[in-house]
Design a protein around this nucleic acid. Sequence first.
DNA 1: CGCCAGGCAACAC
DNA 2: GTGTTGCATGGC
Length: 251
Amino acid sequence: MPTLSDEIRVLFEALIAAYGPRGWWPLISKSGKDGFDADGYHPGLNCQPDTGDRFEIACGAVLTQNTAWRNAERGLRRLHELGLMRPEALANADTVTIADLIRPAGFCNQKSECLSVLARFFRGLPPGAVPDRDTLLSMKGIGPETADSILLFGFGVPVFIADAYARRTFGRIGLIAADTGYKECRTFTMDGMRVDAGTYGEFHALIVENGKRHCRSKPVCDRCPLIPFCGFSRRFRFFFANRGISSRGRR
DNA sequence: CGCCAGGCAACAC
DNA sequence: GTGTTGCATGGC
């Protein structure tokens, strides 16, 4: 008897077939070096946390909150150019200076405070330690998605990032209700997957890729690789029915 | 011009 | 607990 995981696995396979490995998390400080492309992506490399990269990943996770990655990246590059992409350095910078540097990423006053707190946190983090999720959530400016992004891509903790693209995509397909919140979507997906960090990272990256190309706020369904499964779940169920697989077991 | 982008927190009820 | 609003900037 197939379960939810079969449905999610089909989506994952359709996405990986369409786009291939994405190579997240992008590291602009490594762009152009060691197999990283100009934008900092490294196809085939997912969720392989390196101590020196964790802080940049955390900063990027904050800067991209409700912001296009293009603009978050500008902030990251400016921090990197001034040698501030290290906890010890950024912890000593004042928030006004940081705010000015990350201005292109938007919400610069709130995000500069958050980056400053993050810098001090990472500076004091013992080598090999993995942050507690609740500790991350207790920091102003770090919510569930940012915490999960840091844990997954920075520390290899296997969690699913139920971001706006994931909720929108799953909602349109019909896997979850349209108004499902972060926590419920996260639980729903992890209950059905139970995979390692690399796979969760790849899935998230693929969902974002498809979200940017097709499952936008205003959907661009033409040539979307998920069309066979989409349409308020009807075609999705039909697909499984044709394969002799029941779609029961969801929820 | 208006809407959107890989959220979050503070506040109202 | 849920619903609403401000937060800033750049691309289209």
